Computed example of a mutant assay.
Amino acid sequence: MIIRLCICVYVAFSALPAVAERPVTVFAAASLSTVLGDIVAAWEGPVSVSYGGSGLLARQVALGAPADLVLLANPQWMDWLVQNGAIISDTRQDLLANRLVLIGPAGATQIPNPTLDKILKILGNGRLAIGQTDSVPAGQYARAYLQDTGLWTGVQHALAEAENVRVALSYVARGETPLGIVYATDAKAEQQVTAIFDIPPDSHPAIRYPLALTTTAQNSATDFLNFLLSAKASAIFDAHGFIPLQAAQ
């Protein structure tokens, strides 16, 4: 009787399904929302991605949000996560680079040299859409460019600061603002805007997208990180206008 009971208990427990790992949870900069959709589609496993401004995402991770992998648009926020002990520093590396552009509505005329007078004339009573300059990397890069070229003082009163770069992009796409400063990849992803000036890369800090595993990352997150570094993923990033920085294997 005892032997039969033990056998029954063993069979009952062995019949239970194995506990599967939850989907890999990625916190990613908003400017990656289009390309990561294609990356996730090419990955052979469940992935959940939350997008937002890099500063907001970094703060959430530091407070214990359940992220496995973080992919931001500014190394400074990743530095901050390292200081707060929220990521595994050995897994950190720069994945991508990007560029800034000045945008207008679809079909807008190119501006070879956007002086203050030209910008203010186009703006009229409108505003210049950029990311929040205190926390959104695209906004911080835009401010650096405007300061470097002496435009900051003249346009500071006319800024429309958005919670992330994709919101700034949408302001121009919907005609709510006549001009905006976004990443080149954002302009490429939105048919309702036109890049009217390529902002010189030496006018602002280099745009880098660092990634790292969090200290609470599950095992499958390492596999997804390795996929992001693969030749297949690099080709997808390149097709969307990003500049892969890691040598694809």
Rank of each mutant, 00 (worst) to 15 (best):
Thr185Arg: 04
Pro114Gln: 12
Leu225Pro: 03
Thr214Cys: 06
Val24Trp: 01
Leu159Thr: 10
Pro210Met: 02
Ile130Phe: 09
Ala28Tyr: 02
Ser203Leu: 14
Arg22Thr: 07
His204Trp: 10
Pro200Val: 10
Trp80Lys: 11
Val155Gly: 11
Pro201His: 11
Glu176Thr: 10
Ala144Met: 12
Lys232Asp: 09
Ala12Lys: 07
Ala173Gly: 06
Leu151Ala: 14
Ile199Phe: 11
Ile130Val: 15
Ala86Val: 04
Leu179Phe: 08
Arg174Ile: 11
Asp134Phe: 10
Asn74Tyr: 11
Pro105His: 11
Pro210Thr: 06
Arg99Lys: 13
Ala129Thr: 09
Pro114Ser: 14
Lys232Trp: 02
Val182His: 03
Pro75Arg: 08
Ala28Phe: 00
Asn113Met: 13
Ala142Phe: 04
Pro66Gly: 00
Val47Gly: 02
Leu57Asp: 05
Asp94His: 00
Lys188Trp: 07
Leu159Gln: 12
Asp117Arg: 15
Val11Lys: 13
Glu190Leu: 09
Phe237Ala: 05
Leu57Gln: 00
Ile207Gln: 03
Val155Asp: 09
Ala233Phe: 05
Tyr51Cys: 03
Gln147Arg: 15
Thr215Leu: 12
Gln218Phe: 01
Pro114Met: 11
Pro205Arg: 04
Asp79Tyr: 08
Ala173Tyr: 02
Leu120Cys: 15
Ser230Gln: 05
Ser170Trp: 01
Gln60Tyr: 08
Ala142Gln: 02
Phe237Leu: 07
Gly150Asp: 15
Ala108Asn: 09
Gly55Asn: 02
Arg208Tyr: 04
Gly124Val: 13
Asn113Val: 12
Ala187Trp: 00
Trp43Ser: 04
Thr185Ala: 03
Pro201Thr: 08
Ala15Glu: 08
Gly124Ala: 13
Pro17Ile: 06
Val165Gly: 03
Ala160Asn: 13
Asn219His: 08
Ala106Glu: 14
Glu190Trp: 04
Glu21Val: 00
Ala168Gly: 11
Val165Met: 06
Ala108Ser: 15
Asp94Glu: 02
Gln249Val: 12
Ala187Asp: 01
Glu21Cys: 01
Glu176Gly: 13
Lys121Cys: 12
Arg127Phe: 15
Ala67Trp: 02
Leu159Lys: 10
Arg127His: 15
Ala86Tyr: 05
Val26Leu: 05
Gln110Tyr: 10
Ala239Phe: 07
Ala142Thr: 08
Gln156Tyr: 15
Ala168Thr: 03
Thr25His: 05
Ile7His: 07
Ala28Lys: 00
Ala12Asn: 08
Ala65His: 05
Ala184Val: 01
Thr216Asn: 09
Leu16Thr: 07
Asn113His: 14
Leu16Gly: 08
Val82Gly: 06
Ala67Asp: 03
Leu5Tyr: 09
Asp38Met: 04
Val136Asn: 02
Met1Arg: 12
Leu36Arg: 01
Gly150Gln: 14
Ala97Glu: 02
Ser220Val: 01
Ala106Gln: 14
His157Asn: 15
Arg99Gln: 13
Gly154Pro: 13
Ala65Trp: 03
Ala168Arg: 05
Val70Asp: 00
Ile111Arg: 10
Leu123Lys: 15
Val9Asp: 01
Ala173Asn: 06
Lys121Asn: 14
